[in-house]
């Protein structure tokens, strides 16, 4: 399949299409007219954004320089001018939009500016609530989010959470928070007598927990790669 394909000569096809554009008809003094535009913009910002705008200059007499100034002052307001109307093409700067003619009036549908879609807030991180004490030998694994225990966590029990761990009783067992690499996870407890605390893999055993903290309300958090255990309140 290596037959050569002769490049075919493309014939340029021209197509006509008509669009509806907003027509601005500035009046003198220009400053007043611009203030009106500003008022409209203040009312509904972004109303003209992305819409074709044609400037009808038949009511004003402006020099080529004046037209350029008007077009640029509209541009600073986020209004891009598609074309000019009601002015002689001769003598205008070539950088200005082209002069149009033969425009016909039509009813412009009042289209409400598209409301910026309010993104629904991302679903709150799921959490697991345990109303009963976690007994010795029980293992609670909840990788999706936080774990809250209303009672105590017994010696020999284990809580594993993807998020933070909150214990409103005494934490006597093991608590491992942020196991999916969440280093912002913390462990909070009303009374710390934990056998082991871990956040994102960094751990401390009961031996390492300061004696002054024992039986006190405390939290554990990661400071870089150091697991800190500090008193609450």
């Amino acid at each position: 399949m290596d037959a050569k394909v002769e490049p075919q000569r493309q014939v340029m096809r021209l197509r006509g299409r008509s669009y509806v554009a907003f027509v601005f008809s500035p009046f003198m003094p220009i400053m007043n007219w611009l203030e009106e535009i500003d008022a409209t913009l203040a009312h509904s910002p972004g109303f003209f954004a992305g819409r074709p705008i044609v400037l009808d200059l038949s009511a004003v007499e402006l020099s080529s320089h004046g037209v350029a100034h008007l077009v640029s002052s509209l541009e600073t307001r986020g209004i891009r001018v598609l074309g000019l109307e009601g002015i002689e093409a001769g003598g205008l700067d070539s950088k200005l939009p082209p002069v149009l003619s033969g425009g016909r009036g039509c009813v412009v549908e009042q289209v409400e500016p598209k409301k910026v879609e309010v993104q629904p807030p991302p679903p709150a991180a799921p959490s697991l609530l345990l109303r009963n004490p976690v007994r010795s030998g029980q293992r609670i694994v909840f990788t999706e989010g936080d774990v809250t225990v209303l009672g105590s966590v017994g010696s020999g029990a284990e809580i594993v959470a993807g998020g933070s761990i909150h214990v409103y009783g005494t934490l006597r067992g093991r608590a491992m928070a942020g196991i999916n690499g969440n280093s912002d996870a913390r462990i909070y407890c009303q009374k710390i007598e934990a056998e082991l605390l871990a956040i994102d893999g960094y751990y401390q055993t009961a031996e390492d927990i300061g004696e002054t903290l024992r039986r006190q309300p405390a939290q554990a958090w990661l400071d870089g790669d150091i697991l800190r255990i500090t008193p609450l309140n």
Partner: peptide, 17 residues
């Protein structure tokens, strides 16, 4: 004493499950 209390805690967990 601590060991029998911890074992009791374990058993309570089993009673509840």
């Amino acid at each position: 004493e601590v060991s029998s209390v911890r074992d009791a805690d374990r058993i309570i967990g089993m009673l509840d499950s």
